[in-house]
Write a protein that binds this DNA or RNA. Structure first.
Lengths: 218, 218
DNA sequence: TGTACATCAGTGAACGCGCGTTCACTGATGTAC
DNA sequence: TGTACATCAGTGAACGCGCGTTCACTGATGTAC
């Protein structure tokens, strides 16, 4: 608020236009996927000439990187807000699915087919690990959770030996394993659902997802 | 063999060139992803002019569809061959991972980010269900497998009621559930690994994958 | 075996398009005295 | 309050590029008698 008061009208206008450019970019991505994003098309849709956009973004790559950053930021905030409201792992699972269904192409911009040669800047990978930390918090074993079976213990000891991620996070190997399973399993069910691989099979993807959540939280 | 004897030299040559075009197409996809595939670039790489390719494929879309078909066909054959050699579910899991690692972009062409508006022709979805049937065969419960827990039974009853896929396959609800979990969980771990989301975390993706396989096969 | 014709692969020119991006310029908005 | 200057948004023309695709044509290969 105090920072906003310092904003000049020109800065406000700039920020608004940047936001509108991104808005149109998301619409294009939703309609044709990320590869179909075109600066000229965005400009035309906004009723201005193509070169005008270069006042707001250095080039196409910078715009896409910014969209990826926003997507990560949005997901991280959504997850953390849910966690702060007392959501458990299952709750976070529902939050994740709702966020993905809200804009599938946005989800795929993060977790979809990688573009060969593209490497996200460091601040984006930092947001990604923020998400992981939120999962780790929620994955801390509760009193009710059962101890891991013998076979599962193998992955846990592996994680205990090799983890150099989750930096200073005081997560137990059990929590690490649960967080990883949460991530990979839900992503598996979710991405196949969003890509339409379940259509025509006659079952409810939500049911499959619920089932995985039950497994995850015992 | 007898069919091959009927082939004229011209037909042989045609088939060879079609195959080489696809070969170069796969190289391009490996290098820049499917959106970067260009007929002209393929022609140039083969030392011929762009229009020449239209003797072999009606247009770009037909080539891509053909690649998708070949990818599905290849995976289905690989899975079925492994199953015919006596591989169990865990063996099929290893087969799947090896096939995906062999050419990640080929895997993503099938299971990656969907292109909005694209619908695969019927014969391709038929191959997809061939794969599912192979999984169902391998997912039949053995004597050693434990009965499903109470929570899991919910998905099974749901599948028993609503399944209109797997047509005439005599799979039990338990086998359906196992096959689905096989598919979604392994895809989850695999696609995140291939997309590089585990890099820098310091654990071995193969270990995570093995762990999921152990869960799947009890 | 030789000639006449049909088939087919591949070429080069061309079309129209949309892309990202640069540049010199106009006109409006804000700032300093 | 009024004038002089600086800042900045946006335009239109232009560049070079690569794309998919068509078309008329040449030349080689196969087929029929």
């Amino acid at each position: 608020m105090t920072a906003a008061a310092k904003e000049t009208p020109r800065e406000r206008y700039r920020a608004q236009l940047r936001a509108e450019i991104k808005e149109r970019a998301w619409e294009q991505i939703a309609a044709a996927g990320a590869p179909g994003l075109s600066l000229n098309a965005i400009a035309k849709q906004m009723g201005m000439s193509g070169p005008a956009l270069y006042r707001y973004f250095a080039n196409r790559d910078e715009l896409i990187t910014e969209l990826i950053r926003d997507a990560y930021r949005g997901l991280a905030d959504t997850i953390r807000t849910a966690a702060a409201s007392g959501a458990d792992l299952a709750g976070l699972g529902h939050t994740l699915r709702a966020w993905a269904l809200d804009d599938p192409q946005r989800y795929f911009l993060i977790y979809g087919t990688p573009v060969p040669g593209y490497h996200a800047p460091d601040d984006i990978t930092a947001i990604a690990s923020e998400i992981m930390h939120a999962l780790l918090d929620a994955a801390q074993p509760t009193a009710a959770s059962t101890p891991p079976a013998a076979e599962v213990a193998r992955l846990e000891s592996h994680l205990a030996e090799h983890r150099q991620w989750a930096g200073d996070h005081p997560a137990s190997p059990t929590a690490l394993r649960r967080a990883l399973h949460f991530w990979t399993r839900l992503h598996g069910a979710l991405s196949l659902e969003l890509a339409g691989h379940f259509t025509g099979m006659g079952f409810d993807p939500a049911e499959l997802y619920e089932n995985e959540l039950r497994h995850l939280t015992q």
